[in-house]
Design a protein around this nucleic acid. Structure first.
Lengths: 143, 143
DNA sequence: CTTGACTCCGTAGCTGCTACAGACTTTATC
DNA sequence: GATAAAGTCTGTAGCAGCTACGGAGTCAAG
Protein backbone atom coordinates (compact mmCIF):
# COMPACT_ATOMS: atom_id res chain seq x y z
CA UNK A 1 0.00 0.00 0.00
CA UNK A 2 1.51 3.28 -1.13
CA UNK A 3 1.40 6.47 0.83
CA UNK A 4 -1.45 8.02 -1.11
CA UNK A 5 -3.55 4.91 -0.52
CA UNK A 6 -2.67 4.95 3.16
CA UNK A 7 -3.69 8.61 3.21
CA UNK A 8 -7.03 7.82 1.62
CA UNK A 9 -7.61 4.85 3.93
CA UNK A 10 -6.69 6.71 7.10
CA UNK A 11 -8.06 10.14 6.36
CA UNK A 12 -4.67 11.68 7.07
CA UNK A 13 -3.14 14.02 4.57
CA UNK A 14 -0.26 12.46 2.67
CA UNK A 15 2.25 15.00 3.88
CA UNK A 16 0.94 14.63 7.40
CA UNK A 17 1.82 10.93 7.31
CA UNK A 18 5.38 11.77 6.43
CA UNK A 19 5.35 14.35 9.18
CA UNK A 20 4.18 11.78 11.74
CA UNK A 21 7.00 9.55 10.64
CA UNK A 22 9.52 12.35 11.00
CA UNK A 23 8.43 13.13 14.55
CA UNK A 24 8.40 9.45 15.48
CA UNK A 25 4.66 8.89 15.88
CA UNK A 26 4.70 6.47 12.98
CA UNK A 27 7.43 3.86 12.54
CA UNK A 28 9.53 4.00 9.41
CA UNK A 29 7.67 1.82 6.94
CA UNK A 30 9.26 -0.79 4.75
CA UNK A 31 10.25 0.41 1.30
CA UNK A 32 9.79 -0.90 -2.19
CA UNK A 33 12.88 -1.52 -4.31
CA UNK A 34 12.69 2.02 -5.64
CA UNK A 35 12.36 3.57 -2.23
CA UNK A 36 8.60 4.12 -2.05
CA UNK A 37 7.02 3.73 1.37
CA UNK A 38 4.94 0.55 1.71
CA UNK A 39 2.25 0.51 4.38
CA UNK A 40 0.56 -2.44 6.02
CA UNK A 41 -3.02 -2.39 7.33
CA UNK A 42 -1.63 -2.09 10.85
CA UNK A 43 -0.01 1.19 9.85
CA UNK A 44 -3.31 2.52 8.62
CA UNK A 45 -4.88 1.55 11.92
CA UNK A 46 -2.20 3.44 13.74
CA UNK A 47 -2.84 6.47 11.55
CA UNK A 48 -6.54 6.27 12.31
CA UNK A 49 -5.74 6.01 16.00
CA UNK A 50 -3.75 9.22 15.74
CA UNK A 51 -6.41 10.88 13.65
CA UNK A 52 -9.16 10.03 16.13
CA UNK A 53 -6.95 11.26 18.94
CA UNK A 54 -6.59 14.56 17.12
CA UNK A 55 -10.35 14.74 16.62
CA UNK A 56 -10.69 14.44 20.38
CA UNK A 57 -8.23 17.30 20.74
CA UNK A 58 -5.28 15.37 22.13
CA UNK A 59 -1.87 16.84 21.40
CA UNK A 60 0.65 14.77 19.49
CA UNK A 61 2.60 14.26 22.70
CA UNK A 62 -0.50 12.96 24.43
CA UNK A 63 -1.16 10.69 21.50
CA UNK A 64 2.40 9.48 21.71
CA UNK A 65 1.71 8.43 25.29
CA UNK A 66 -1.59 6.84 24.35
CA UNK A 67 0.12 4.88 21.60
CA UNK A 68 2.75 3.65 24.03
CA UNK A 69 0.05 2.59 26.46
CA UNK A 70 -1.84 0.95 23.63
CA UNK A 71 1.22 -0.92 22.39
CA UNK A 72 2.17 -2.17 25.82
CA UNK A 73 0.51 -5.50 26.49
CA UNK A 74 0.68 -5.10 30.28
CA UNK A 75 -1.98 -2.47 30.14
CA UNK A 76 -2.02 0.45 32.56
CA UNK A 77 -5.55 1.62 32.17
CA UNK A 78 -5.19 4.04 35.06
CA UNK A 79 -2.62 6.07 33.16
CA UNK A 80 -4.89 6.29 30.15
CA UNK A 81 -7.75 7.35 32.35
CA UNK A 82 -5.64 10.03 34.05
CA UNK A 83 -4.41 11.38 30.74
CA UNK A 84 -7.91 11.53 29.33
CA UNK A 85 -9.29 13.22 32.44
CA UNK A 86 -6.54 15.84 32.43
CA UNK A 87 -7.23 16.51 28.79
CA UNK A 88 -10.94 16.80 29.46
CA UNK A 89 -10.28 19.31 32.22
CA UNK A 90 -8.18 21.32 29.81
CA UNK A 91 -10.96 21.30 27.23
CA UNK A 92 -13.42 22.51 29.85
CA UNK A 93 -11.09 25.37 30.68
CA UNK A 94 -10.83 26.34 27.06
CA UNK A 95 -14.59 26.24 26.69
CA UNK A 96 -14.90 28.47 29.71
CA UNK A 97 -12.39 30.95 28.36
CA UNK A 98 -14.12 31.06 24.98
CA UNK A 99 -17.51 31.43 26.63
CA UNK A 100 -16.25 34.41 28.59
CA UNK A 101 -14.91 35.93 25.37
CA UNK A 102 -18.18 35.33 23.58
CA UNK A 103 -20.17 36.87 26.39
CA UNK A 104 -18.07 39.99 26.49
CA UNK A 105 -18.11 40.32 22.73
CA UNK A 106 -21.87 39.92 22.63
CA UNK A 107 -22.18 42.64 25.20
CA UNK A 108 -20.14 45.21 23.29
CA UNK A 109 -21.67 44.24 19.95
CA UNK A 110 -25.17 44.65 21.32
CA UNK A 111 -24.31 48.11 22.58
CA UNK A 112 -22.84 49.07 19.23
CA UNK A 113 -25.88 48.01 17.24
CA UNK A 114 -27.77 51.14 18.24
CA UNK A 115 -25.48 54.11 17.73
CA UNK A 116 -23.34 54.52 14.69
CA UNK A 117 -21.93 57.95 15.25
CA UNK A 118 -18.62 58.94 16.81
CA UNK A 119 -18.61 56.53 19.69
CA UNK A 120 -18.16 52.96 18.58
CA UNK A 121 -18.60 50.91 21.71
CA UNK A 122 -16.55 48.02 20.34
CA UNK A 123 -13.51 50.18 19.79
CA UNK A 124 -14.36 51.89 23.06
CA UNK A 125 -14.17 48.59 24.88
CA UNK A 126 -10.73 47.96 23.42
CA UNK A 127 -9.49 51.46 24.19
CA UNK A 128 -10.90 51.50 27.67
CA UNK A 129 -8.46 51.72 30.56
CA UNK A 130 -9.47 51.02 34.13
CA UNK A 131 -8.59 54.50 35.36
CA UNK A 132 -10.31 55.98 32.33
CA UNK A 133 -13.67 54.34 32.55
CA UNK A 134 -16.40 53.62 30.06
CA UNK A 135 -17.13 56.16 27.31
CA UNK A 136 -20.70 54.97 27.42
CA UNK A 137 -23.01 57.00 29.63
CA UNK A 138 -25.64 54.31 29.75
CA UNK A 139 -25.63 52.46 33.11
CA UNK A 140 -26.28 49.25 31.16
CA UNK A 141 -22.77 49.50 29.81
CA UNK A 142 -20.96 47.96 32.76
CA UNK A 143 -23.03 45.24 34.36
CA UNK B 1 9.55 55.29 29.31
CA UNK B 2 11.76 52.29 28.62
CA UNK B 3 10.55 49.03 27.21
CA UNK B 4 10.40 47.19 30.53
CA UNK B 5 8.26 49.96 31.97
CA UNK B 6 5.99 49.90 28.95
CA UNK B 7 5.75 46.15 29.43
CA UNK B 8 4.76 46.54 33.06
CA UNK B 9 2.28 49.31 32.25
CA UNK B 10 0.65 47.47 29.37
CA UNK B 11 0.74 43.92 30.63
CA UNK B 12 2.51 42.81 27.45
CA UNK B 13 5.67 40.78 27.71
CA UNK B 14 8.75 42.79 26.85
CA UNK B 15 9.72 40.57 23.96
CA UNK B 16 6.15 40.62 22.73
CA UNK B 17 6.35 44.38 22.41
CA UNK B 18 9.38 44.07 20.19
CA UNK B 19 7.54 41.40 18.25
CA UNK B 20 4.54 43.68 17.70
CA UNK B 21 6.90 46.32 16.42
CA UNK B 22 8.55 43.85 14.06
CA UNK B 23 5.24 42.80 12.55
CA UNK B 24 4.08 46.38 12.24
CA UNK B 25 1.34 46.44 14.88
CA UNK B 26 3.30 48.97 16.90
CA UNK B 27 5.06 51.93 15.30
CA UNK B 28 8.80 52.20 15.69
CA UNK B 29 9.27 54.21 18.86
CA UNK B 30 11.65 57.09 19.26
CA UNK B 31 15.06 56.18 20.62
CA UNK B 32 17.30 57.56 23.31
CA UNK B 33 20.79 58.66 22.36
CA UNK B 34 22.12 55.19 23.07
CA UNK B 35 19.45 53.47 21.01
CA UNK B 36 17.02 52.43 23.74
CA UNK B 37 13.35 52.45 22.79
CA UNK B 38 11.42 55.30 24.41
CA UNK B 39 7.66 54.89 24.75
CA UNK B 40 5.00 57.54 25.19
CA UNK B 41 1.73 57.00 27.08
CA UNK B 42 -0.08 56.71 23.73
CA UNK B 43 2.11 53.72 22.91
CA UNK B 44 1.12 52.02 26.13
CA UNK B 45 -2.51 52.64 25.30
CA UNK B 46 -2.01 51.04 21.92
CA UNK B 47 -0.38 48.06 23.59
CA UNK B 48 -3.31 47.72 25.93
CA UNK B 49 -5.66 47.93 22.97
CA UNK B 50 -3.82 45.03 21.38
CA UNK B 51 -3.71 43.12 24.62
CA UNK B 52 -7.45 43.48 25.19
CA UNK B 53 -8.07 42.45 21.62
CA UNK B 54 -6.06 39.30 22.26
CA UNK B 55 -8.03 38.66 25.43
CA UNK B 56 -11.16 38.74 23.29
CA UNK B 57 -9.54 36.22 20.99
CA UNK B 58 -8.96 38.45 17.98
CA UNK B 59 -6.08 37.47 15.74
CA UNK B 60 -3.26 39.92 15.19
CA UNK B 61 -4.56 40.56 11.68
CA UNK B 62 -8.00 41.37 13.03
CA UNK B 63 -6.42 43.64 15.59
CA UNK B 64 -4.47 45.31 12.82
CA UNK B 65 -7.78 46.11 11.14
CA UNK B 66 -9.33 47.28 14.37
CA UNK B 67 -6.38 49.58 14.99
CA UNK B 68 -6.71 51.05 11.51
CA UNK B 69 -10.42 51.63 12.09
CA UNK B 70 -9.63 53.12 15.47
CA UNK B 71 -6.98 55.43 14.09
CA UNK B 72 -9.16 56.65 11.26
CA UNK B 73 -11.16 59.70 12.32
CA UNK B 74 -13.88 59.17 9.73
CA UNK B 75 -15.16 56.23 11.65
CA UNK B 76 -16.67 53.22 9.91
CA UNK B 77 -18.48 51.59 12.77
CA UNK B 78 -20.15 49.09 10.45
CA UNK B 79 -16.82 47.51 9.56
CA UNK B 80 -15.93 47.13 13.21
CA UNK B 81 -19.28 45.60 13.89
CA UNK B 82 -18.94 43.14 11.01
CA UNK B 83 -15.48 42.12 12.10
CA UNK B 84 -16.59 41.58 15.66
CA UNK B 85 -19.63 39.57 14.59
CA UNK B 86 -17.57 37.34 12.32
CA UNK B 87 -15.15 36.76 15.15
CA UNK B 88 -17.99 35.98 17.52
CA UNK B 89 -19.37 33.42 15.09
CA UNK B 90 -15.95 31.82 14.91
CA UNK B 91 -15.74 31.63 18.69
CA UNK B 92 -19.14 29.98 18.82
CA UNK B 93 -17.94 27.38 16.34
CA UNK B 94 -14.89 26.67 18.40
CA UNK B 95 -17.01 26.30 21.52
CA UNK B 96 -19.23 23.88 19.68
CA UNK B 97 -16.30 21.81 18.50
CA UNK B 98 -14.81 21.68 21.98
CA UNK B 99 -18.16 20.80 23.49
CA UNK B 100 -18.49 17.89 21.10
CA UNK B 101 -14.99 16.74 22.05
CA UNK B 102 -15.76 17.02 25.74
CA UNK B 103 -18.99 15.08 25.36
CA UNK B 104 -17.33 12.23 23.54
CA UNK B 105 -14.44 12.15 25.97
CA UNK B 106 -16.79 12.07 28.93
CA UNK B 107 -18.60 9.19 27.35
CA UNK B 108 -15.52 7.01 26.90
CA UNK B 109 -14.09 8.00 30.27
CA UNK B 110 -17.31 7.08 32.03
CA UNK B 111 -17.28 3.67 30.37
CA UNK B 112 -13.69 3.12 31.39
CA UNK B 113 -14.31 3.87 35.06
CA UNK B 114 -15.88 0.46 35.57
CA UNK B 115 -13.57 -2.13 34.06
CA UNK B 116 -9.84 -2.07 34.55
CA UNK B 117 -8.84 -5.29 32.92
CA UNK B 118 -7.72 -5.96 29.36
CA UNK B 119 -10.28 -3.82 27.63
CA UNK B 120 -9.64 -0.13 28.15
CA UNK B 121 -12.58 1.62 26.56
CA UNK B 122 -10.63 4.81 26.01
CA UNK B 123 -8.00 3.08 23.95
CA UNK B 124 -10.78 1.02 22.41
CA UNK B 125 -12.50 4.17 21.22
CA UNK B 126 -9.29 5.32 19.58
CA UNK B 127 -8.58 1.95 17.98
CA UNK B 128 -12.10 1.39 16.81
CA UNK B 129 -12.75 1.28 13.09
CA UNK B 130 -16.32 1.31 11.94
CA UNK B 131 -15.98 -1.00 8.97
CA UNK B 132 -13.20 -3.18 10.35
CA UNK B 133 -14.09 -4.19 13.92
CA UNK B 134 -11.42 -6.82 14.55
CA UNK B 135 -7.86 -5.52 14.58
CA UNK B 136 -6.45 -7.93 12.04
CA UNK B 137 -6.59 -11.70 11.92
CA UNK B 138 -4.35 -11.99 8.88
CA UNK B 139 -0.70 -12.84 9.68
CA UNK B 140 0.34 -10.71 6.68
CA UNK B 141 -0.68 -7.68 8.65
CA UNK B 142 2.60 -7.20 10.45
CA UNK B 143 5.43 -7.33 7.96
C1' DC C 1 35.88 51.08 38.88
C1' DT C 2 33.38 47.35 39.05
C1' DT C 3 29.24 44.96 39.47
C1' DG C 4 24.75 44.05 38.16
C1' DA C 5 20.67 45.14 35.83
C1' DC C 6 19.00 46.58 31.70
C1' DT C 7 18.75 46.95 26.60
C1' DC C 8 20.04 46.03 21.88
C1' DC C 9 19.78 42.81 17.56
C1' DG C 10 19.24 38.60 15.25
C1' DT C 11 17.97 34.13 15.17
C1' DA C 12 15.99 29.74 16.56
C1' DG C 13 12.51 27.26 18.94
C1' DC C 14 7.62 25.84 19.96
C1' DT C 15 2.82 23.05 17.66
C1' DG C 16 0.86 20.73 13.82
C1' DC C 17 0.85 20.80 9.88
C1' DT C 18 1.13 22.32 4.64
C1' DA C 19 3.50 23.53 0.46
C1' DC C 20 6.81 23.98 -2.32
C1' DA C 21 11.28 22.59 -5.59
C1' DG C 22 13.74 19.44 -8.18
C1' DA C 23 14.80 14.69 -8.91
C1' DC C 24 13.23 10.23 -9.60
C1' DT C 25 9.74 6.11 -10.68
C1' DT C 26 5.66 4.16 -12.19
C1' DT C 27 1.68 3.94 -15.13
C1' DA C 28 -1.08 4.96 -19.14
C1' DT C 29 -1.47 6.02 -23.81
C1' DC C 30 -0.09 5.85 -28.50
C1' DG D 1 9.05 1.07 -27.28
C1' DA D 2 8.55 6.03 -26.60
C1' DT D 3 6.61 9.52 -24.28
C1' DA D 4 3.60 12.00 -21.22
C1' DA D 5 1.22 12.22 -16.93
C1' DA D 6 0.86 11.09 -12.37
C1' DG D 7 2.90 9.60 -8.30
C1' DT D 8 6.75 9.57 -4.98
C1' DC D 9 11.13 10.93 -2.95
C1' DT D 10 14.02 14.37 0.11
C1' DG D 11 14.75 18.61 2.23
C1' DT D 12 13.44 22.97 3.42
C1' DA D 13 10.48 26.96 4.35
C1' DG D 14 6.22 28.88 5.70
C1' DC D 15 1.92 29.81 8.85
C1' DA D 16 0.44 32.14 14.11
C1' DG D 17 2.01 34.21 18.10
C1' DC D 18 4.90 34.40 20.66
C1' DT D 19 9.29 33.09 23.83
C1' DA D 20 14.08 32.39 24.66
C1' DC D 21 18.39 32.51 23.88
C1' DG D 22 23.58 34.55 22.77
C1' DG D 23 26.76 38.11 22.66
C1' DA D 24 27.36 42.97 22.76
C1' DG D 25 26.64 47.54 24.41
C1' DT D 26 24.69 50.97 28.29
C1' DC D 27 23.55 52.84 32.70
C1' DA D 28 23.23 53.49 37.86
C1' DA D 29 24.71 52.28 42.46
C1' DG D 30 28.20 51.27 45.66
Amino acid sequence: MKISEAAAASGCHLETIRYYERVGLMPRPTRTGSGYRAYAPADVERLRFISRGRELGFSLEEIRSLLRLNDDPKLSCGDVDALARAHLADIHQRIEALTRMAGELERVIAQCAGGERGTCTILGALRRTDNNPTPCADPECRP
